[in-house]
Amino acid sequence: MSRTSRLTANRLTLAYEDRTIVDQLDLEIPDGRVTVIIGPNACGKSTLLRALGRLLRPQGGAVLLDGTELARIPSRQIARAIGLLPQTPVPPEGITVADLVSRGRHPHQKWWQQWTEADEKAIGEAMERTGTAELADRPVDELSGGQRQRAWIAMALAQDTEILLLDEPTTYLDIAHQVEVLDLVRQLNRERGRTVVAVLHDLNQAARYADHLIAMKAGRIVAQGPPADIVTADLVHEVFGLASVVVPDPVTGDPLVVPSRPWQPPSEPGTATPRATERDAAPAGQA
């Protein structure tokens, strides 16, 4: 990286009991950029994000914020700097959307001043941006999956941190709301300079919205950099085991991953077998 990063990992080792997930990983998160982590299931991307948000204690190495180990920083101080939306958050029983979102303001409040105009403004703006204002009085556990996800995102936005960690923020959302959420993430980054780190499953969405892409496999970083520089058919095959063609997105020009031809039934006797094109026959990375 050409400049100092506020959030870094140094020889980071992460494990669950005796199973090592990430082993001696070094990482620098670019400040003021949208970083997206991609990779197959169980590759360690969500585990890494949990460690960056101090939800998981390292077995070795450290995560550092402004050069200081997270383990040495008071929790409230971390909560003012890093907001985290985990993959499957569980709300307190019976809590309403408005109450849930308001909890994002707790790190900013003091014992002698529990509520301010800044809190009110941050909560209202977060709910407006996520389309949850009309759900304010609804219990969170009565919402649909998509509505619930938007409520959690609103809470993370209300926390108003300079670094925002999002673990699969588009889970349970239909395609229109997925785009809305990712557009919101980009808007927060571009207009307010927020540093965002997100885990996404959709490689094409990652390539479209990321400034910096991190591709992981088996607990290690295979490649990282701007999507245009690293997203190739060879990388897709190495990380996901998928044969594909990578072409420019017709709207944005970003890399667009097109999987190989879908399965087709065998030709019936007496009919001609469709002839494979040169592109169909080419191995990954040579199409």
Rank of each mutant, 00 (worst) to 15 (best):
A287Q: 03
G60A: 03
Q87V: 06
A62Q: 14
Q113D: 11
P227Y: 00
H106F: 05
D66I: 08
M216Y: 01
E93N: 05
T35N: 04
E128D: 15
P266I: 05
W263L: 15
V179K: 00
R275N: 12
I37L: 15
V36I: 15
V179F: 08
E238V: 10
D249K: 03
E93R: 00
F240E: 02
R76E: 07
A176V: 12
A126L: 04
A71C: 07
P107E: 06
P58N: 00
T20I: 15
T13H: 08
V196L: 09
L135N: 06
Y209V: 11
Y172M: 12
T47N: 09
R261L: 08
Q59K: 05
R148E: 01
E93Y: 04
Q59S: 08
V101N: 01
I153T: 03
L165D: 02
L25P: 12
D280Q: 15
D234K: 13
M127P: 00
D202F: 11
V258N: 01
A215T: 06
L203W: 01
D160E: 13
A207E: 04
E162C: 09
R50S: 15
V34H: 06
L65G: 10
Y209C: 05
A51W: 04
I82Y: 06
E180Q: 12
V196F: 03
D280H: 14
L164Y: 06
A210C: 07
L173M: 14
Q149R: 15
L135W: 00
V246G: 01
R76M: 02
I78N: 11
K45S: 04
G225P: 07
K45Y: 09
I29E: 13
A287W: 11
V257N: 00
L182Q: 05
L143T: 07
R279T: 15
A243K: 14
T170R: 10
R148N: 05
E278L: 14
L85Y: 05
E162P: 14
V239T: 07
G145V: 03
T252P: 02
A281S: 12
L188P: 00
